[in-house]
Design a protein around this nucleic acid. Structure first.
Lengths: 129, 129
DNA sequence: ATGGACCTTCCAGTTCAGGGGAAGGTCAAC
DNA sequence: GTTGACCTTCCCCTGAACTGGAAGGTCCAT
């Protein structure tokens, strides 16, 4: 499979695939006699893994860690568990932050919407933010 | 007030203040005879405004829009209302996305945690991500 | 034999909000 | 008179994950 076919099959671009190879997420593949990269079908499942990891909010560096463990011959289950746990802690914090921000913004927005612009004190930019 | 004093009072750095000036968020201030910037106390309230806007999740570009309206002599209430409304729409989407992601991650994580590593199929990197 | 669709490498740029550090001017204290 | 803490401009760097484009090689059909 050439790089363009693989990119199309994975729903990405050739640029991204070369970037992933450079970043160590895709192995350096065989080259055909003309120098073209030649991928086997396992490249597609690896790209699917990368995509799922990205959807889960993992960074490419984290995804690479998992891949490296796998490539070293070990099962990455435990590492994945820890990674996902850390990600969940982070998500919970993000959600709490956004909830608080949302409440604050609603209050400020509604004040700004009801305000008489002529009552706006000129010594500040906007008292509602 | 010199730039270092202002930075300390605002809880930021001189680098940031020069960057804000460059970005049009702080006006080009008076200079003392020696070329040093000389700020009045209104600079501090403007910096507070910028900080509050940042906390509200506005970009520097959006904060600058509000400042420009104010500097043009208009009350920015209406613009602020729209900005905050758009930001709220965005926050609601972010929260919904994170909630969905959280549920999915919990499921995957718990599967990965219970998995027997030896049952890990070697043809994929990790079936739990 | 030539056009277009591929592929290769390499270099540079994008966004966002600053940070690092050089080279030099200024000021107050000791 | 010299240290040390300020200040100035200038240019490049960061991180994340790509994206754009140039210059050139290859393959297939017409």
């Amino acid at each position: 499979m050439r790089i363009g076919e693989l990119a199309a099959a994975a729903g990405t671009t050739t640029k991204t695939l070369r970037f992933y190879e450079e970043a160590g997420l895709l192995p350096q593949t065989e080259r055909a006699a003309n120098g073209y990269r030649d991928y086997g079908p396992e490249a597609l499942s690896r790209l699917d893994f990368i995509r799922r990891g990205r959807v889960a909010g993992l960074t490419l560096a984290q995804i690479r860690e998992v891949i490296d463990i796998r490539d070293a011959g070990d099962a990455p289950c435990h590492h994945v568990y820890q990674l996902l746990t850390a990600r969940l802690v982070d998500i919970d914090r993000q959600i709490a932050d956004l909830d608080a921000l949302r409440a604050a913004l609603i209050q400020r927005r509604d004040q700004a919407g009801e305000a008489d612009p002529s009552s706006c004190p000129p010594d500040t930019v906007c008292r509602y933010v």
